[in-house]
Amino acid sequence: MNDRVRKDTARRLERAMGSLGTAAMARMDDRLAWYRQLSAEDRSWVGLVAQAGIAAFVDWFQSADGGTPAPSVEIFGTAPRELKRSVSLQQTVDLVRIVVEVVEAEVQELAAPGGEDQLRQAILRYTRDVAFAAAHVYAREAEVRGAWDARLEALIVDALVRGEVGDGLHSWAAALGWTSSPVVVLAGHAPEADPQTLIDGMRDKGRRLGHDLLAGVQGERLIVIVGGAGSVKDAARHVVPRFGPGPVVIGPEVPDLQAAASSARAAMAGLRAAAGWPDAPRPVPAEDLLAERAIDGDEDARAQLVENVYRPLEGTPLLDTLATYLEQGTSLEATARLLFVHPNTVRYRLKKITELTGYLPTEGRSAFTLQVGLILGRLSRTAVT
């Protein structure tokens, strides 16, 4: 009896497939605002998915013996991958609900006499399987997209560290949703945690704070690029605790991602040279490590020190005053005696040196940086002549 009723119901379903599909599409257009906003091509694909779902249900109902699994996963293979980016999982659930409503509304007409409950139970079972199938499809797409995003992120970080900033960098970053400026790069040692778990956690934290964040682990180093932070201090406060033990160096703030290679270069050079200043704060700006970076062979740091320290003083009495002051162990009186000037003149000149260079000769770290800058300036003059 049940087999005969099932077969009769299946024949009725088969004859009604076209009208059910049309009714489902009309109800989508009437009730789903987001569906109406889709392109004509995407609406066409959605219609094909709905038709495929109904056809698959009919085929399954015809052959089902109570234990046959519903072939629900295959219906999503009808649409191209791009459609999964246009239609969210929640919207897919809306589509399934409407198709089910359309079929349920016609149960009395579609089912053979005595087969109404049988058809309703089949619809419920099939709906459950379709829901699980939709979740499976979107989860798989998310995994694929996540793996692709991770590779793209690694490419961006690697390109910035290498200084290979091409036209594709902004396209790569845009694909990851990067829109922020200014940008700052931090470099330090990676913790022992799983790299991808670490990076995902940092990115989620950055998103909650309204920052864009890219990160990459290269060997023992962790490189983090932060965009959209209100200040360097703001960016560092939430990122630095994620680094492993040891120094964390902050590159200079730059206007956009295209210019971030210079920030990355400074941060990496600072990380290499940080051992020269064991008592450096954590984090430490790369600018505060100019002297150590220059000694370590960083050409950018050498050029910056010559430009910032030696050039402003060159050709003025300030240069001799600074050199004598440093050679005399920062003794004001000894400097005045050797230069045959009053100590107040030395004080005045030291103040001018601070105004021109930004470094205070009477402070230990600044005096060290000024000393390195003077030496590099002299060497640059020798190289020119």
Rank of each mutant, 00 (worst) to 15 (best):
Leu313Glu: 12
Gly66Met: 05
Ala134Leu: 07
Glu143Lys: 03
Asp42Gln: 04
Ser231Trp: 10
Glu41Ile: 07
Gly114Ser: 06
Ser262Tyr: 08
Pro69Ala: 00
Arg203Ala: 09
Arg140Cys: 12
Ala273Ile: 03
Pro278Ile: 00
Ala142Glu: 15
Leu289Thr: 06
Ala26Lys: 09
Glu287Ala: 08
Val284Arg: 10
Arg120Met: 10
Ala79Met: 08
Pro247Phe: 01
Arg207Asn: 14
Arg145Phe: 09
Glu327Pro: 02
Gln37Lys: 12
Asp42Gly: 05
Leu13Met: 07
Gln218Ile: 04
Asp29His: 05
Gly315Arg: 06
Gly66Leu: 08
Arg97Glu: 13
Leu374Arg: 14
Met25Ala: 14
Glu141Asp: 15
Arg272Tyr: 05
Val284Leu: 08
Val107Asn: 10
Val240Phe: 01
Ala187Ile: 03
Val93Gly: 04
Leu338Arg: 15
Gly377Phe: 07
Phe243Glu: 09
Ser380Lys: 14
Leu332Asp: 03
Gly168Gln: 14
Thr357Cys: 09
Arg36Ser: 09
Leu313Cys: 09
Arg311Ile: 15
Gly201Cys: 04
Glu192Arg: 09
Thr369Ala: 14
Leu119Pro: 02
Leu271Val: 10
Asp212Tyr: 05
Pro71Met: 05
Gly246Lys: 00
Thr321Phe: 02
Ala264Asn: 13
Gly276Arg: 13
Val249Arg: 08
Gly276Leu: 07
Leu350Tyr: 02
Val224Glu: 09
Glu220Val: 02
Val183Phe: 01
Ala266Val: 08
Met202Asp: 07
Ala286Ser: 09
Arg97Thr: 06
Leu360His: 13
Trp277Asn: 04
His211Trp: 15
Arg365Trp: 09
Pro285Leu: 03
Glu82Tyr: 04
Arg81Asn: 11
Arg97His: 10
Asp320Asn: 08
Ala280Glu: 00
Asp300Asn: 13
Asp117Leu: 07
Asn308Thr: 14
Leu186Met: 15
Leu370Ile: 02
Val232Gly: 13
Leu356Cys: 04
Glu299Asn: 12
Ala187Trp: 01
Ile75Thr: 13
Gly115Phe: 01
Ser86Ile: 01
Leu313Thr: 07
Val103Lys: 12
Leu198Ser: 03
Gln218Phe: 06
Leu305Gln: 11
Ala55Tyr: 11
Ser19Thr: 14
Pro283Ser: 02
Leu209Thr: 02
Gln258Thr: 07
Pro361Met: 07
Ala274Phe: 00
Ala303Tyr: 05
Thr335Asn: 06
Ala55Asp: 15
Arg272Ser: 11
Pro255Lys: 01
Asp129Ile: 02
Val102Tyr: 08
Ala173Thr: 02
His170Phe: 03
Ala336Asp: 12
Ala23Arg: 15
Pro195Cys: 01
Val102Gly: 02
Asp59Trp: 06
Arg162Lys: 14
Glu141Leu: 12
Val165Glu: 05
Leu326Val: 05
Leu271Glu: 06
Met28Gly: 06
Gly216Ala: 09
Glu109Asp: 12
Ala275Asn: 05
Val346Tyr: 00
Pro312His: 06
Pro69Asp: 00
Ala139Gly: 10
Met202Cys: 10
Val254Ile: 07
Leu271Gln: 07
Thr197Tyr: 01
Glu164Asp: 14
Pro255Phe: 01
Arg337Pro: 01
Asp234Thr: 04
Pro241Phe: 00
Met268Asn: 09
Leu213Met: 11
Glu192Trp: 03
Thr316Val: 11
Pro283Lys: 02
Pro285Trp: 01
Gly47Met: 06
Asp167Ile: 10
Thr357Tyr: 07
Gly114Asp: 10
Ser263Asn: 04
Met25Arg: 15
Ile156Ala: 13
Pro191His: 00
Glu141His: 13
Val93Glu: 15
Ile123Thr: 04
